[in-house]
Amino acid sequence: MKSKTSRIWIGILVANAFAMAVMGLTAFVFTYLYHYSNGAGTQFFIYSDFIIIPMAMGIICAWFWKDLELKNGYYLVNALLAVIVAILCSFLFLGEGVICLIIVSPLLMAFIVAGVFIGKVMFQKKNNKLNVSALSVLVIIFTVDSLSEHHYENLVTDTIIIHAAPAEVWKHVASFEPITEPNHYFLFRLGMPSPVQSTVDGYYEGADRKCIFSNGYVFDEKMVVYKPSENLTFDIISQPRDPEIMGHIDIKRGQFLLHDNGDGTTTLTGNSWYQLYVFPVWYYDLWAQSITRNVHTRVMQHIKELSEKK
């Protein structure tokens, strides 16, 4: 029993040590050589980091557990233990924040579990398939992915109808009073910084704008288009980097467009352009869009309330 437990833990620890070593290697070799972005210090986390490595971790665990005659349920529980250790290691050694870990955990969980069960089949005595070929596929995908160019930018657009004329709405677009409304989005409630206030040093093209977040983070922006009652476009000059999600996404540009509906109402459109540094896009862009959309909603809803105040 004791040796069974220790064998389970050895599998978990070896798998995690392997993951840390490989991620360290990719970060300092492949990522540094091929992707390091403009000296700003943004590190890419690629498809392989979240898919191939967790699957390989699961397979490593299964190799250590292959002679223990574990049932499916035990394989699963132990795989989930490996996930918890992986999350702790990411927190301690990779410096990832809590929000990041919440976002990444469904991927880690599913792929480590998948890897464990793939490994279970691979190491069965009556498996007639060549395990070397399965591992080779993982290694090839990992290498090709690590050496490939990773660049992804996207735009998120939201609109809101405001019962006020464009001239009234415009007063609250470039800068606005602090938002005091409680947060409803679950990630903001869990501690992710949310927008609070915007200030400007002037109302003209080229003026500086600051967007202040709930934890004191400041996005420094420059207004590149300033057309009263129509268009405010600003480029993000600098943004905070921290272990939370802001280290994995760069907001490039923001825009507010006002459209006079001719009936005393205004359609306010918010656009944000961003670049992602975490892959696969099919997973992380869902989160990026959700977060950006909720930043938009919070600010635009505030502008609506200020504009409609009698």
Binding site: M55, L107, F111, V113, A114
Partner: peptide, 24 residues
């Protein structure tokens, strides 16, 4: 690539939570 395995991983987790006897 690997999306069905992601789904399969989640299926097993959900099955384990909802009806672990199925895994047995």
């Amino acid at each position: 690539v690997f999306l069905p395995h992601l789904f399969e991983g989640w299926l097993k987790i959900v099955t384990f939570v909802k009806s672990p006897k199925v895994l047995d």
